[in-house]
Amino acid sequence: MGSEETPDLREALKTVAVALKRSGVPFALMGGYAAWARGGPEPDHDVDFLIAEEDSAAAAKFLAEEGLDVVEPPEDWLFKVFTNGAMVDVIFRDSDLTAGRDLVERATVMQVLSVDMPVMPATELVASKLNALDEHYCDLTMPLAVARALREQVDWERVERDTSGNDFAAAVLYLLRRLGIIDRAAAT
C-alpha cells in the first residue's frame, strides 16, 4: 500500500494504536479511518485518534519515548505523530469541544487491520464531520459519502441536536433527506 510518495496510513494507524494501547491512556480511532472501519470510504491524508485533554501530555510523552516523532503544532487542540512518513493526528479537542474521558469511552472496540481498538460510534463521527463544516471548509463530498455509508448506524435525531448550531450541517441533513439517503422524517 505505501511507497516513497504515498505514506502507508494503514501501517501508521496500527503503529500508533498499538503504542496507545501500551500507554494505558484511553483513546479512540476517529475521523475518516473510524468511518472506514465502520464501512465508509477510505481517507487518503491522515489518521485521527481522540484522547481526553487531561491525558494529552502523558500520551505525547509516552509516544515520544516509544521512538515516534511527536510534534506539537501551533494549533492547541492536537499533537501530531509521524511514523514512516505518515501523519497521525492525536486530537484532544474536537469541533471546539474539549474531549473528556466520557467521550473517548463511548467508543466500541472493533478489529481494525487486525488490531483490536476503540472506534468512535457512527453518530459521533457524522456529527463531528458535519460540525467541522464552515464557510472556509464546506466541501460536502466526504460528509455525504460517510453519511450514506453509515446511515443505518446513525441516530439522526441526535445528529440533528448535536449540529443544530451549524447551518452547513443543516444543509447537509436537508440534502440527505432530499436524496433519500436518510428518512425524510429523520433529523427534522
Rank of each mutant, 00 (worst) to 15 (best):
P7E: 09
D8P: 01
T15M: 06
V18Y: 04
K21S: 11
R22Y: 04
R22A: 13
V25W: 01
V25K: 06
G31C: 02
A34Y: 00
A34G: 03
R38C: 10
R38K: 14
G39V: 01
G40M: 00
P41H: 06
P41E: 04
H45I: 07
H45C: 08
H45W: 09
L50S: 07
A59T: 00
A59C: 11
A60W: 01
K61P: 03
L63F: 03
E66K: 08
G67K: 11
G67C: 09
V71K: 03
D76Y: 06
L78P: 03
G85Q: 02
A86Y: 07
V90N: 00
V90R: 02
I91P: 03
I91A: 06
I91K: 02
R93G: 13
D94W: 01
T98W: 15
A99F: 03
V104L: 11
R106N: 12
R106Q: 14
A107V: 15
A107K: 09
T108L: 12
V109C: 12
M110F: 13
Q111K: 15
S114H: 14
V115Y: 06
V115K: 05
P118S: 10
V119A: 05
V119I: 04
S128A: 14
L130Q: 05
L130W: 04
H136P: 06
Y137D: 14
Y137N: 15
T141C: 05
M142G: 04
P143D: 15
A147D: 10
R148Y: 03
L150F: 05
R151H: 05
V154K: 01
V154D: 05
W156E: 13
W156S: 15
E160V: 12
F168H: 15
A169K: 10
L173T: 03
L175Q: 14
L175T: 14
I181D: 06
I181Q: 10
I182H: 03
I182C: 06
D183M: 12
